[in-house]
């Protein structure tokens, strides 16, 4: 048994026609984050440190919906959220409603380590960030032109929907990142510690104050001594299906191996709503989704690695020795 790592940059309806200028920066960030994680694991960093490190890297990339590049609320603001959990101790931390904290995931870790609580939200979380001296920026730092345009389009579509009594037909996916792009990472280190972390800006045109699955322990994020899970997709669906905990519950209460547990949970959620990455205490990795694609990457100590968007045939996989 050795270390293993998996990370994601969101699952959803990702069109195969995704132009290279939208695909390549994300693929590059996934590869860079994976390399960072592998180096850290090889250097003996703990799983908890590694998931935080990777999610920080993904938050800093403006092409994913977390940290800089977070999508906007209907008020045109950003409200970021994140959570982190350690598998063996089951300690966890979560934050919601952040508007100035550069790396939400690191604040979640501080909530876990420096407060008697697990979860802080909105002004209380912002005040805690200042107490702790974490890096903050003006809210404008997080807002990209691309996301201003996404909000404009979303509002336009909403208006259309209100004006016509007939529900709108599903629009062909013109945008690959309007409700996806949450980021997450799971890892097991060579000492057998498991950890998970997830971070997001939520969904475009969300109501101010909306909380999704990402900061909710047991929904978007969960780790136990058996496995670590980070989920992404339609938040409301992931919450009601307690996706993260259910992977662990199937292993714990039904004795299923990781891959079967994860596949069963994903199959039980409405099609198009969820994707997840998970690692087990036995060092297995799984990346499953019932959407058309998921930005994802993984690696194990025995030399396997994979970086992909759509189902396996198109992904960039490398078994030990290459093939």
């Amino acid at each position: 048994m050795g270390w293993a790592i998996a990370l994601h940059g969101g699952a959803g309806d990702i069109p195969r026609s995704l132009p290279p200028e939208r695909r390549e920066p994300r693929m590059a960030t996934l590869r860079r984050s994976l390399d960072l994680a592998v180096a850290a694991l090889q250097a003996g960093r703990t799983a908890l440190d590694v998931v935080e490190l990777v999610v920080r890297e993904l938050e800093n990339c403006p092409h994913f919906n977390a940290g800089k590049g977070s999508v906007l609320t209907s008020d045109g603001t950003v409200e970021m959220e994140a959570s982190i959990m350690d598998g063996n101790t089951m300690r966890c931390g979560a934050v919601s409603g952040l508007s100035t904290v550069v790396n939400a995931i690191s604040l979640a870790r501080l909530v876990m380590e420096k407060t008697p609580h697990i979860y802080l939200g909105f002004h209380g979380a912002e005040a805690f960030a200042r107490d702790q001296g974490v890096e903050t920026r003006d809210p404008g730092h997080f807002i990209t032109d691309e996301n201003i345009e996404r909000l404009r389009l979303a509002k336009q579509a909403n208006r259309v929907q209100i004006d016509y009594t007939q529900p709108m037909k599903a629009q062909p996916p013109t945008d690959d990142n309007s409700r996806i792009g949450t980021v997450g990472c799971v890892a097991i280190d060579s000492s057998g510690n498991l950890a998970t972390a997830t971070s997001t800006g939520g969904l475009v045109n969300k109501m101010a104050g909306r909380i999704g699955d990402t900061p909710i322990i047991g929904a978007g994020t969960y780790a136990s001594p058996l496995c670590a899970v980070s989920a992404t997709g339609k938040g409301e669906s992931i919450i009601r299906h307690t996706v993260g905990r259910d992977v662990a519950a199937l292993m714990e209460h039904r004795g299923l191996p990781l891959k079967e547990a994860a596949a069963r949970v994903v199959a039980g959620v409405p099609r198009g709503d969820v994707g997840l990455v998970a690692v087990s205490a036995a060092g297995e990795v799984t990346m499953v989704y019932n959407t058309s694609g998921m930005f994802r990457a993984c690696a194990t100590e025995d030399g396997y690695s994979e970086v992909g968007i759509w189902p396996e045939a198109d992904s960039d996989a490398n078994a030990n020795g290459g093939n």
């Binding site: 002004h123 109501m207 101010a208 104050g209 909306r210 909380i211 999704g212 409301e236 009601r240």
Partner: peptide
């Protein structure tokens, strides 16, 4: 009545 499952703080009060 909302498209969401969970609202908090000022957003919840507005709603």
């Amino acid at each position: 009545k909302s498209p969401h499952s969970y609202l908090a703080f000022a957003g919840a009060e507005d709603f």
